[in-house]
Design a protein around this nucleic acid. Structure first.
Lengths: 238, 238
DNA sequence: GGACCGGGTTGATTTGCGTCAACGCCGCAT
DNA sequence: ATGCGGCGTTGACGCAAATCAACCCGGTCC
């Protein structure tokens, strides 16, 4: 009976969203800790959502009722001060996991900067799943430890690097397909991520272009032209 | 046979260091995830060390062979740039856990700012322990998630707060026994933690005293005199 | 005692980045 | 076509914090 009920829910979920087995994000996400035979149970707990660009789907301070797994698109994660100052603490792309916080409320807000597909889990149900699949818990610990390392790197950037070094670090970290860097976020987002203003971001990119370190074919696309020099700059070598 | 061997090692460890059952840090550390009957196994894997103030016991970039648990004293954790610029990413006190990083090398350095006692575990052996005690793994995940929340808070501070707000936040966060704030670290450490210079730290503390928000009976001790005002300042309210 | 040294405070000056402002580009709606 | 609003760039100017420098204080080692 219980088994049937689980199966039935799995079928419902599969009908409503892409089943986990076919999920494009699976190999890149925490879900790859789950073996194929158990994916049905995972799908039964998941809820697929489509989110338009610009929609804020996590509000800082709200009761944390869900975990999220990004299956398409990109989100910005941020904290705000009462007068409107904003710090973007990170960008979440395909495979990234959101809502790890143990506390009862979200410690940050999240807003889609591109159309997104996300996989939503109820907090309470996932607890059960964690108990059943220690491998998932181990994977989450790995993910959290990695995030922590990146957070420390970002603290070094925010506390001690110059504007030029910050932009260089940002571009090096985001470069993926060859020398092209895709920038789905606005200059304002980049500024709030690097602890700068939009004007300084713009001026600094212009300066990097003047030094022949990058090219700027479009506002949302940058090409790295002299990677070694950019890496030296990012590392703080004078 | 196997059980005997484990017991024997537990006895050896108990002789060499304080047994976990009597450890003053236990209730405050990750070790409280372990039940008393299993503490002997924990003690068998632990290695107690005494570290004098000023000694760096983790070198950034070194092979990460150990985990550490602080049982007395305080350490500063930091990252450096090649020209000497330094960012302190946190302070580790009694009960804190160091070396979570999954990567093969330490992502930060650690130096004692007071005489310390630490409990050292071999990375490889702890892996075994984690497999045996899922509760420990769950506890580590909680700890990591908490660290992540604090790291995001620090990014907001470093990226968007003024010098006055940074010092106010620092003092509010460190206040523990009543209104007294103990500062075992130097002004240079505070500056490197808050992304400022020692001169700005000194001047800003003097300014806070002038506003009657704090008193400075000694360089290493500050008393909060107007907590609500200090909290407003820390929160960024103008 | 006194020379020395590391840590801390305070003052004068500089500077990197922020602020304020103008303008160009592009997509879109009417 | 035309006006409009969001985004990005560039220039002039201002300011918070960095830099440079002098000095104080309390240990400690001759």
């Amino acid at each position: 009976m219980a088994a049937f009920s689980v199966r039935a829910r799995a079928v419902d979920a599969a009908a409503a969203i892409e089943p986990c087995g076919h999920c494009g994000a699976r190999t890149r996400s925490v879900c790859n800790a789950i073996e194929a035979p158990d994916l049905a149970r995972l799908a039964a707990l998941a809820h697929g959502l489509t989110i338009p660009a610009g929609r804020q789907f996590i509000e800082e301070g709200d009761a944390a009722e869900h975990f999220f797994n990004v299956t398409a698109g990109t989100a910005k994660l941020f904290k705000m001060l009462p007068d409107g100052r904003r710090q973007i603490t990170g960008f979440a792309g395909v495979g990234d996991f959101l809502g790890l916080a143990v506390s009862a409320t979200y410690a940050f807000g999240a807003e889609a900067i591109e159309p997104m597909r996300i996989c939503r889990f109820s907090r309470s149900r996932l607890k059960t799943l964690l108990a059943d699949f220690p491998a998932l818990e181990r994977r989450l610990l790995e993910v959290a430890a990695n995030e922590l390392v990146m957070a420390q790197e970002q603290m070094l950037l925010l506390g001690r690097k110059t504007a030029r070094e910050r932009l260089a670090s940002f571009l090096i970290a985001r470069q993926s397909h060859g020398d092209a860097v895709r920038l789905p976020m606005t200059r304002s987002d980049i500024a709030d991520y690097l602890g700068l203003t939009i004007e300084t971001v713009s001026r600094t990119l212009t300066w990097l272009r003047g030094q022949r370190l990058i090219e700027i074919p479009a506002a949302a696309e940058i090409v790295i032209r002299d990677r070694p020099a950019l890496e030296r700059l990012a590392a703080g070598l004078r």
